[in-house]
């Protein structure tokens, strides 16, 4: 049985890390890149990983639309439950109720935004920490790659030659 080994290459230089990712991903390759870790959103790494645009915006949009109608409907419903004319305004008054609708739009859009983030980024998930090196939140860029046990030395050598530090994950 061929066992898979996970190796993390840690780089202090963002561009070197990005170059290593590109080389690792270049076919034909026996190694699989599982992810890169960085202390800030690195443009170079995003390009090397060919990151696609996130779809959380759809959650935000859905939240906003639901929010507007919820806010407006709440205001209209409460007004219709006690049909008291105030200041000569109609019972279902458009202008003031749009303000309530607007605030609910923002509130629900933000809640949708957050929900989108948590579901798409799969958080909270403490199991993430198993394949992680604490240096990646500081000043290192980590590349998590895997290979067969027989190829481990090659992969380690690949990272070392490019100026990286190795960490083999159990």
């Amino acid at each position: 049985m061929v066992t898979e080994v996970y190796v993390m290459g840690l780089f202090k230089d963002e561009n070197r890390a990005a170059q290593a990712v590109e080389e690792l991903r270049r076919p034909p390759t026996a190694w699989t890149v599982h992810g890169v870790h960085s202390p800030f959103p690195s443009r170079a790494l995003a390009e090397a990983m060919h990151v696609k645009k996130s779809r959380v915006g759809w959650f935000t949009l859905a939240g906003g639309i639901i929010g507007f109608f919820t806010g407006f409907a709440l205001a209209a419903f409460t007004a219709l439950r006690w049909k008291l004319i105030v200041s000569g305004k109609p019972i279902v008054a458009l202008v003031p109720f749009v303000i309530v609708g607007f605030e609910f739009t923002i509130l629900f859009a933000i809640l949708g935004n957050l929900m989108g983030f948590l579901t798409q980024a799969r958080l909270p998930r403490l199991a993430n920490l198993a394949c992680y090196d604490p240096r990646c939140s500081g000043e290192h860029f980590g590349i998590l790659a895997s290979c067969s046990a027989t190829d481990k030395d090659h992969l380690c050598a690949f990272f070392t030659e490019r100026g990286g530090v190795i960490r083999v994950l159990d």
Partner: peptide
């Protein structure tokens, strides 16, 4: 459980 992966940053920046 934040680990700063490219996937997390992808959604976070958005």
């Amino acid at each position: 459980g934040w680990t700063g992966t490219h996937e997390q940053w992808r959604h976070y920046t958005r």
